[in-house]
């Protein structure tokens, strides 16, 4: 079980016009593994996640989920996507539906499971993130942190095998970041396979099994978290990590 390959990316290239955004990415994500993707803004982190979910068509290479090829726009893509949950920076709950309807919509309409069963599933998950009481509320009535937790539940309700998180705390107030990260930590402990793009360094260090450092569309480092944070190999990674450290200037 330990080393079963869940997601495999072979020599992935992604171009927008003539601009190469992802340049020869090779990555293996094992079952139950948590991979955190770090890197300066504009390095292609979000694009990488969007490719993994078939939201962006790739130019070269292949992405395999349980050995099945993910191709944007293909017929099988909707089937495969049900196995991959994705959470976005801007929550993107459906504004015209209350929280319960938001999280049960896809199970009912896409997986065609009975409403009752979907609601039982939703209840379990909403209780776990402390939102069961808010199930009848509409997205606009919730705080950012609550919305993001609901968005995570919406993805989890499909019983995915892999979860992708695209800077899910970047738009949140500091005190709300914690409540969302806690949910993610709990998921990781529960054995969920996860790929996370984040700027929360301490969280990355705590949650990751593997850190990927992306620079100009290439993976320049792949390391265990302790190794990466204490002893980064490349200059850019060093500078990148340094930018999160605050020191009071010594008075001469």
């Amino acid at each position: 079980m330990e080393n079963k390959v869940q997601l495999k990316i072979n020599n992935l290239r992604k171009r927008f016009g003539t601009e190469v955004v992802l340049d020869g990415i090779n990555l293996t994500v094992n079952k139950g593994e948590v991979v955190v993707v770090l890197g300066p803004s504009g390095c292609g982190k979000s694009t990488l996640l969007r490719c993994m979910n078939g939201l962006e068509a790739i130019s070269e290479g292949e992405i395999l989920l349980d050995g099945e090829k993910i191709t944007a726009g293909s017929k099988e893509i909707t089937k495969l996507r049900q196995k991959i949950g994705m959470v976005f920076q801007s929550y993107d709950l459906f504004p015209h539906k209350n929280i319960l309807d938001n999280v049960t919509l896809a199970p009912i309409k896409v997986q065609k499971i009975p409403r009752k069963e979907a609601e039982e599933r939703a209840e379990k998950l909403l209780r776990r993130v402390g939102l069961w009481k808010k199930r009848k509320a509409f997205p606009r009535e919730l705080s950012g942190g609550q919305k993001q937790r609901a968005a995570i539940v919406r993805a989890l309700c499909m019983n995915p095998e892999v979860m992708l998180f695209d800077e899910v705390t970047a738009a949140l107030d500091p005190q709300m970041v914690r409540e969302v990260l806690n949910v993610m930590l709990e998921l990781a402990e529960g054995g969920m396979t996860m790929v996370i793009v984040t700027h929360e360094m301490q969280f990355a260090r705590a949650v990751a099994d593997k850190i990927i450092f992306l620079e100009k569309g290439k993976i320049t480092e792949e390391a265990e978290p302790e190794e990466f944070f204490t002893n980064p190999k490349t200059e850019t990674a060093k500078e990148f990590l340094q930018s999160f450290v605050y020191e009071k200037h010594k008075i001469q």
Binding site: R50, N53, G54, L55, T78, K79, R81, Q82, I84, G85, M86, F88, S90, D92, L93, F94, P95, H96, L105, A106, K109, V110, Q111, A151, R154, A155, M158
Partner: peptide
């Protein structure tokens, strides 16, 4: 917003399902 489409697609919805369940009700209002 484009994100509404992305969220729906990410949940495994087809274009038709996205149109019916996400786009139409929102435009309708």
């Amino acid at each position: 917003p484009k994100n509404q489409y992305d969220s729906a697609f990410a949940l495994g919805m087809t274009k038709a399902q996205t149109f019916i369940h996400i786009v139409v009700p929102q435009t309708f209002r």
